[in-house]
Amino acid sequence: MAITRDDVEKVSLLARLQLNGEEIERLTGELARIVEYVDHLNEVPTEGIEPMAHAVEVHNVFAPDEIQPSLPREEALANAPSHNNRAFLVPPVLG
């Protein structure tokens, strides 16, 4: 399935990326070529094959329900681009 410029713009919003015109142009071509390559997977018959999400078959791993120390707030905020010592700060969300 060919990828269009419009697809790339839509996906860039889903991916929370802001692309300029030149980037959209280039990515449209590059992604189209990569997708054309991976489209060869359609040739492989996979009827009745279970998808394999993990290299090791995963099973539930239970941990005892014990209270353990968590990251202190000060350390959790230490790398934040903006904070007020209590919370992460973001630009106004409403309005």
């Binding site: 492989v44 996979t46 999400a53 290299a55």
Partner: peptide, 10 residues
């Protein structure tokens, strides 16, 4: 599809 082919590879 890729996850299914992954199993075939394994």
């Amino acid at each position: 599809k890729a996850l299914k082919v992954r199993r075939l590879i394994r």
